[in-house]
Nucleic acid binder design. Structure first.
Length: 267
DNA sequence: AGCACA
């Protein structure tokens, strides 16, 4: 189905633009076309360098999807993902092999129907979760309440928290790099790195890491997806990430901004 | 193995 959609030409930015232009030509009155060199050029079938920046009549319909949006959206999505981002799950699995291998967690919920773990790979992707109704997620009363996709979540472990404790981060790894890994996950909030002195003198210092999520369910999704994540994908003895729910040690990790959401799961 | 920040 998705294929059919793509085959209609929506996936091709150039076709996209041409279609837009043609539509626009048809909508422009002849006078406007005459006054608009770019439009005239397009009518003559010439390639435009910047077709999207040409001037428009003041009453040009603005409720059409802008060509810059339409033409830009799909290709960009594709570029980011590095392949045809037809199905989110494929994208996810390709990125996080461990998740693919185990396939344990279909979804911990927390997100739009069928979605949830989607590393939207962009910008502020993670932050949309904050205002979204976190259905059936982390310690809220409505756990396992059905929603759109009919996906039922596995119950969270009783020690679940909205903060993950991560070991196995290389010592030369900076906060920014760790953020890159976690940021795509819905509900991501913050990364904190802590350097500990080695137990045995002479050893390398170790890096511990705490990652906050908006709620425990979202933390769980991320934990499953990244469990065993290799920092250097082609290096056999690259360190593997080990993720757990962080032990509760203070108020900070207990409740998210949702007011009662997140934190330890209580029954 | 290892659990900090407020």
């Amino acid at each position: 189905m998705a294929d059919a959609y793509w085959r209609q030409g929506y996936g091709d930015p150039r076709q996209q633009q041409q279609q837009q232009q043609q539509q626009q030509q048809q909508m422009l009155p002849p006078s406007a076309r005459a006054l608009n060199p770019a439009a005239a050029a397009a009518a003559a079938g010439q390639q435009l360098q910047q077709p999207l920046k040409r001037p428009r009549p003041a009453d040009y319909p603005t409720d059409l999807p802008g060509a810059h949006e339409m033409a830009g959206y799909y290709p960009r999505e594709e570029d980011r993902a590095g392949y045809a981002a037809v199905r989110e799950t494929q994208a996810l699995n390709a990125s996080y092999e461990r998740f693919l291998r185990t396939g344990q967690i279909q979804s911990y919920g927390a997100g739009p129907a069928g979605g949830s773990i989607r590393p939207t790979a962009g910008a502020n992707a993670g932050y949309q979760a904050d205002d979204r109704p976190v259905v059936a997620a982390g310690g809220m009363d409505g756990r396992n309440a059905g929603f759109g996709g009919g996906i039922s979540e596995p119950p969270l472990p009783p020690d679940a928290s909205n903060t993950l404790f991560i070991e196995g981060i290389p010592t030369d790894c900076e906060r920014r790099e760790v953020s890159h890994i976690f940021r795509p996950f819905v509900g991501f909030k913050e990364v904190r790195l802590v350097t500990k002195d080695p137990r045995h003198p002479g050893g390398d210092p170790i890096v511990l890491c705490f990652v906050d999520f908006a709620n425990a369910a979202q933390a769980a999704v991320s934990m499953e997806a990244l469990q065993g994540y290799k920092f250097d994908e082609h290096d056999r003895n690259s360190p593997h990430l080990r993720l757990q729910f962080a032990r509760f040690t203070g108020p900070r990790g207990q409740s998210g901004p949702g007011g009662g959401g997140g934190g330890r799961v209580r029954r």
